[in-house]
Design a protein around this nucleic acid. Structure first.
Lengths: 339, 339
DNA sequence: CTGAAAGCGCTAACAC
DNA sequence: GTGTTAGCGCTTTCAG
């Protein structure tokens, strides 16, 4: 398979290199006849434009970077990441962009790469996940002019000037807690993660729900966890000593861990303790018992992140785009509302 | 932040563009004094070579493609993918390569992209996961000269001429089944997936273990599943009608589903039914009960895939490299061997 | 509507 | 050991 060039194709079609370029880039100013002839030759030869040459000449790589700063091994195995990656990949495919992956295992790696990422021209824009609250990554790339969007709300300090796509974590947690309150539960615990802004927002929603219904907030009923099943299990074990009647877990993985902890104590869900999760992962519907949870539109968030980024790249970075997607409560058996 | 070029840096350091290039590419033939001066300027300016120009001139992009053909949403959320992606990303980072992601949701997308991937020069090499047995992807890219390695054994027809990194699935399954037999179990079931060669090899190992110990192979004790928890649950429900004493599940996700199915029938693991999994995912150790499983070195496989690919790129594609990594049985409570 | 020509920023062969 | 020079394959004015 020969590596064809524009020049080759032009020669075969009896036109100049520029004309072929115009055809490929769907520019106007080419007669239909010529266009057809060129397209024919392209099809026959299987010609593919060289992307390095294209990038160099146009200073556009059509590559998007997907950055996950200082990621923890445990967190990354959460299906959330698989789903967001899949959605981003799919959106990139549709728009003829290539997604590249930048997972950093340490702050060092993060620092070393951020400069490269931002100024080698390899990448047209970045999608950054707000994995942990203390990542410096966004601050490091801001001085560079590279377009980026964050998935998840940035810290308040910078939230106004950063474009982001988020889901309404606060409202979701409010919904979840309110649902439990409506079932008549009074001692409602929370398995909380304060590692990122999503955790903070869910915590805020949880508290607001209790306050709105006049329930006291008992800090002893809030146990800290990471975003993993194992950590949910441990946190629930701890919470069990406080005898909660119901629990809001800040993620489905945590909820699954909690259910396991509850059952390992020979208690039943929801009869002895009701559980609500957050995410509506594929696992949630088929769990035992099926999990009541807050569905967040992960696929939509990924797609919108890509499209927002492309919009920023193609138009202008100003003003910062802020998108907050609605969530919805999915009621299943684990919260005691379904027999 | 100005976009510096080699020429700029040369001017600032009082040398020519070529000298700067030599310094950057760590070539010999530069005096230490000059080298230092140049490095100094590079540091001060924060100069980053333009990657498009580099690729064009050197015809090397330093980008590796990570291809997952026709992936199923359900399969991709298996932590296996997160771990292999993480390992590949890490190895790429270490070798100064960038990993790009190509997930295909359909055979169409696969076909459309394969040509681009193979002949646009975007990518120096490909790592292909053997997700399903019927993917045509490898056959489509073989005519092109692009270097690639597969993770997981290819089909027999093509196994000799394709480079791959695999784990010893057959031996692992043999180990797992033998372990159950040694515990004295006779009616040993299997939750099998025949979607890829890993499934086939595990099935073969399972059967060989039974045959070696003179146990009959009862096809009714083999239930088909996909690589997901939910599907393991369903397959186990079915298998329960056959009253097995022990079960070998072809993955940890399947095993977890199986355990859930067993417990939902008010049976206990391992007292009523022993379970062994495959993978040793992070979840396995902290499951209830902790899961006996076959540990496969996913991180090593990912790292080796990258390094093998780089070796092929830098030296020659011939001969095809075949790497099969050993696995190990990790005995925990679920198989009844630990009290 | 089409072609000629000038780069994009770098590498690498070749001279000095 | 260092500089000069000729491309890499494309996009993009600018003429015609």
């Amino acid at each position: 398979m020969k590596r064809w060039t524009l020049e080759d194709i032009g020669k075969l079609a009896g036109v100049s290199r520029s004309t072929v370029s115009r055809v490929i880039n769907d520019q106007p100013h080419t007669s239909p006849a010529v266009r057809q002839r060129v397209e024919q030759v392209i099809r026959e030869t299987g010609y593919q434009p060289n992307s390095a040459a294209r990038s160099l000449a146009s200073s556009q790589s059509r590559i998007l970077g997907l950055v996950m700063p200082s990621i923890l091994q445990s967190a990354f195995t959460d299906p959330y990441y698989a789903l967001i990656i899949q959605a981003i990949s799919h959106a990139c495919n549709q728009h003829d962009y290539t997604p590249s992956l930048f997972l950093f295992q340490s702050a060092d790696e993060e620092a070393k790469m951020s400069q490269r990422l931002a100024s080698s021209g390899l990448i047209d824009g970045l999608i950054v996940t707000a994995d942990t609250i203390d990542s410096q990554f966004v601050q490091m790339i801001q001085p560079y002019a590279i377009p980026f969007v964050q998935i998840g709300r940035p810290l308040r300090e910078s939230a106004t000037c950063i474009s982001y796509v988020d889901v309404d974590n606060e409202a979701g947690a409010y919904l979840a807690a309110s649902h439990l309150i409506q079932q008549g539960y009074q001692r409602i615990g929370q398995l909380a993660t304060l590692h990122n802004t999503a955790g903070h927002d869910r915590d805020a929603g949880f508290r607001r729900a209790l306050l709105d219904r006049g329930l006291p907030i008992d800090e002893k009923l809030i146990a800290l966890s990471s975003f993993s099943e194992a950590s949910g299990y441990r946190a629930m074990q701890q919470l069990l000593t406080q005898k909660p009647e119901a629990v809001f877990a800040q993620s489905d993985a945590i909820a699954l861990g909690a259910i396991r902890a509850i059952r390992d104590q020979d208690l039943r869900v929801p009869e002895d303790i009701a559980v609500v999760g957050f995410d509506d992962m594929p696992l949630a519907a088929s769990a035992s018992p099926p999990l009541t949870t807050v569905r967040q539109p992960i696929a939509r968030a990924g797609k919108l992140a890509v499209e927002t980024l492309l919009d920023i790249i193609q138009t202008s970075p100003q003003p910062a785009r802020h998108i907050v997607l609605p969530v919805e409560l999915v009621i299943r058996a684990s919260s005691g509302a379904v027999s």
